[in-house]
Amino acid sequence: MSDTTTTTSTPGAVQTTGHAWDGDLQEFNNPLPRWWLWSFYATVVFAVFYWFAYPAWPFGKTWTKGFTTATYTEGGQSHTMRWNTRSALLEDLDSGSDAKRQRQYLDKIAQTDYAAIAKDPQMVAFVNQAGKRLFETNCSACHGRGGQGVVGLFPNLVDDDWLWGGSYQAIETTLKHGRNGYMPAFGSVLNATQIDDVANYVLSLSGVVPSSEASARGQKIFTGATGGCYMCHGDDGKGIKSMGAANLTDKIWTIANVPAAQSPADKLAAVRAVIGNGVQNVRKMPAWGERLSAAEIKLMAVYVHQLGGGQ
């Protein structure tokens, strides 16, 4: 047991606490410097200050909010909030140094015409960086992170086929106002053989199947009053951009996934399905004019244009 009998110590040796256990067990005393203790008290004081400055103590279903605030502008209106990591982030996104620099670039984009932007390596580099983030936030949910889209649902933006036009102006219009892709269903207009013939003709347009009697019959339906396909897709099947009608003569398939179908019969079935059912209620691009600023729309037009090497 501990007792506090005086223990012998040689001069110059380390001091002991003065206790002796079991007769001879002693404890060295290496005292902490006093300032060390004061630094500890200082951290306690700092913690108390912190409780008042920042969100700290939970009580009931709420918590102490702290007196520090964060200010940011959204929609032209200035908001001041109690500090929390979200409001701090909003403040940084609104008035941080990077946000200011980004705004300078956006202003420059807004004042420069499309042709000049594409010629300036600096601005192209900025469009690529900023455009990628904007694309991921706004567009990638449908078009995919890289803009590759989903066949049958969302157009591929990386290829060189532009349903609604690939010029800067056309892309800007698409972004601002959205698009509504539509093809009527021919299942009730044409009979099964006719649909089969038209499908054969469509496949022969891009050389997937060779021309045959069936495709010749299909061409008559396509370009004649029976089918009336030419009204949207054109006499030559190259599509009409103002209607969003696809070019059927190139190697790109946007609705019927012909390249993925293995056998000729499957390819034919894929095209037949599109002709029979039409394209309805799937090709709906929302309008972004309300959500993005004019400069951001312009930036995105350049970004999307360069994704596929526009027209």
Binding site: G146, Q148, V158, D250
Partner: peptide, 20 residues
């Protein structure tokens, strides 16, 4: 190399890869 998508079919039958 831009890996998403890795390659893309072009209308004239060629294939396009993108890089940064």
């Amino acid at each position: 190399q831009i890996r998403q998508p890795l390659s893309v079919q072009l209308s004239d039958g060629r294939v396009q890869n993108s890089y940064e």
